[in-house]
């Protein structure tokens, strides 16, 4: 039992952070030379369901993991094809971990690791639609604190790559984003699990008012993630880490002129966890974005 609880503890401590795909403010706009934009997003995720593989098991100690993050994001378009973006998180993280039948609450908050992306987009414009293929290498820089009860940052530079395609007509929006993160080994030999993600977003544009330049998008996303096993301090593989999951993400976006407001609900539909781990549970996101001409 004690061993299992220690495994739970390690699994929770090394649970990977939520991966982020592109966001509309980064993808749809600004597509004009010299354009720039900002977006804030508040996201909140919590987990209290323990799983072994695909089976839910009891969680007598009430272990849980709650993470709320406020993101400040920005993008600058040198040209339609070349942009640079940043995503800076401010995170509040709470974990209830167990050891020897007792529980311990761990908490930390602070600035996390900033993600810098270099977007390369190849556009096609046709009479009734526009589309692009994007290749985006990213760096996650160690700006977050590594001390405290829970590390907010991992203290090393991580590398990401995204390949995405999107198409948009007056009534339809679709996007496929395939991406991955390779995490570096930290000074104590530990490493978060590497990850692959595939996001598919399809949606409609049910309302647009030409006179006020305002309207609504309604999207349904299917997000899948695969995490490899992480390494414990000392470089040993953590058997209670690594997972595969799929979630549905209904999204509603309202815009007026250069302002976009979005709300998302993350609904898990499948998860397969190595060993014993808390499975990802539902989460919400709310964001506001604004773009400017130069």
């Amino acid at each position: 039992m004690k061993k299992r609880i220690k495994q739970y503890l390690l699994a929770i401590l090394l649970s990977p952070t939520i991966l982020l795909a592109h966001q509309p403010v980064m993808d749809m706009a600004p597509r004009w030379e010299g354009g720039y934009g900002f977006q804030t997003r508040l996201e909140s995720f919590s987990s209290n369901q323990l799983k072994q593989g695909t089976t839910e098991v009891s969680n007598p100690l009430g272990l849980r993991n709650e993470k709320t993050t406020l993101w400040l994001e920005g993008v600058y378009s040198f040209t339609r094809e070349h942009r640079v973006s940043f995503k800076l998180p401010y995170t509040n993280h709470f974990k209830r971990v167990g050891d020897g039948g007792s529980t311990q609450d761990l908490r930390n908050e602070g600035m996390g690791d900033v993600i810098v992306g270099f977007l390369n987009k190849f556009y096609v414009n046709k009479k009734d639609y526009t589309g692009n293929i994007s290749i985006t290498p990213s760096l996650r820089l160690p700006t977050g604190a590594t001390g405290g009860d829970i590390s907010i940052g991992d203290g090393v530079v991580d590398f990401g790559l995204s390949v995405s395609a999107s198409v948009e007509s007056y009534g339809f929006y679709g996007m496929v984003d395939f991406f991955g993160w390779a995490n570096s080994i930290e000074s104590d030999g530990s490493r978060n699990g590497n990850s692959l993600g595939l996001d598919i977003d399809m949606g409609i544009h049910p309302y647009h008012d030409m006179k006020t330049n305002s309207g609504v998008f309604a999207l349904m996303g299917l997000n899948s993630r695969i995490y490899s096993k992480s390494l414990n301090p000392g470089g040993f593989e953590n058997q209670n880490s690594g997972s595969a999951s799929i979630e549905m993400v209904p999204t509603l976006i309202w815009y007026k002129d250069n302002i976009m407001v979005r709300g998302q609900y993350h609904m898990p539909i499948y998860s397969d966890m190595n060993g014993s781990q808390l499975q990802p549970t539902s989460g919400i996101q709310f964001g506001v974005g604004i773009v400017f001409e130069s």
Binding site: R31, W32, G35, K127, T130, E168, H208, M210, G215, V291
Partner: peptide, 18 residues
């Protein structure tokens, strides 16, 4: 002007302002 690809007003903001 008939313009290819102009299907979203949020995306066309920069062109309109220019």
């Amino acid at each position: 002007v008939r313009v290819d690809g102009i299907v979203c007003s949020f995306c066309a903001y920069g062109a309109e302002k220019n």
